[in-house]
Amino acid sequence: MKLFASNTSPFVRKVRVVLREKGAEGLVTEEIVVAREDPPALHAANPLGKIPALILNDGMALFDSPVICEYLDTTLPGPSLLPASGPKRWKVLRLEAAADGILDAGVATIYEGMRPTDERSPAAMLRWRNAIIRSLDFLESELGATFASPDIGLIAVGCALGYLDFRFPDIAWRDTRPALAAHFEALSARRSFKETMPRA
């Protein structure tokens, strides 16, 4: 399999972490691309022109990190990272959705900040920042103090928090969220997170 990737994308990091948690990183080669440069190979794999995109061994392409992560979890051996059904599955998927929403707002803020100053929307950037703050507070109340084995929801949360450290250190999310900080510390000690730290 081949993964279209970058070294800074938190969505790519989710896939990399899942591969390592499944003990399957050796099954995937990576092609580093810059999505904003619109490489034709990426467009052939994902018409949206976004990463990650995963080319399967039969040539089919999957895109969007939740789809790729669920595919890897259900087709590869190793510990299950997403419950098959029931309330636990919906809780995991809700965590993933909140974390991915933080990432969507963060990435949108970064791209907005790349626009010429007179073309930026301060109102939109403030709205995205407020969405991040509310979502962090939601995750703090949702997770509680007990750390369990990582699942796709916790992996997404860890990648979101790591991205905030990387791109938005001024948010200082740890200051009033001890449960989140404890979960992130436990995740960061795992090989899967150590080996996938974002690199500028």
Rank of each mutant, 00 (worst) to 15 (best):
S192L: 02
A172N: 15
W90A: 09
A61F: 08
A35T: 02
V92K: 04
W90D: 10
L93S: 15
V18E: 07
V67F: 09
M60D: 11
R89D: 14
E25N: 10
D151G: 10
G78M: 01
K91D: 12
P178F: 14
L136N: 14
I102A: 00
V34W: 10
M60N: 09
A97P: 14
T117D: 06
F184V: 02
S9K: 05
A53P: 13
A124M: 04
V157F: 07
I55N: 15
T196G: 07
A189Q: 06
R167Q: 06
L103R: 01
S9N: 05
A145D: 11
L54T: 03
L48W: 05
S80I: 12
M197L: 13
F11T: 08
N7W: 07
R190K: 07
R129C: 00
G106K: 00
A53K: 10
S6C: 12
G158Y: 02
A181Y: 12
A124K: 04
W90L: 09
A189W: 07
G78F: 00
F193D: 06
A84V: 14
K50F: 01
P39N: 03
Y111N: 01
I102E: 00
L3Y: 08
A179G: 15
R13W: 08
L76Q: 08
E195R: 13
R89H: 14
E140D: 15
S65M: 09
R134W: 10
T75M: 08
L187P: 09
A124N: 04
V15P: 06
T109H: 00
R94E: 14
P122G: 03
G153R: 11
D104K: 04
D151L: 13
I132V: 04
P87G: 14
R177D: 13
P169E: 07
S141Y: 13
D118C: 06
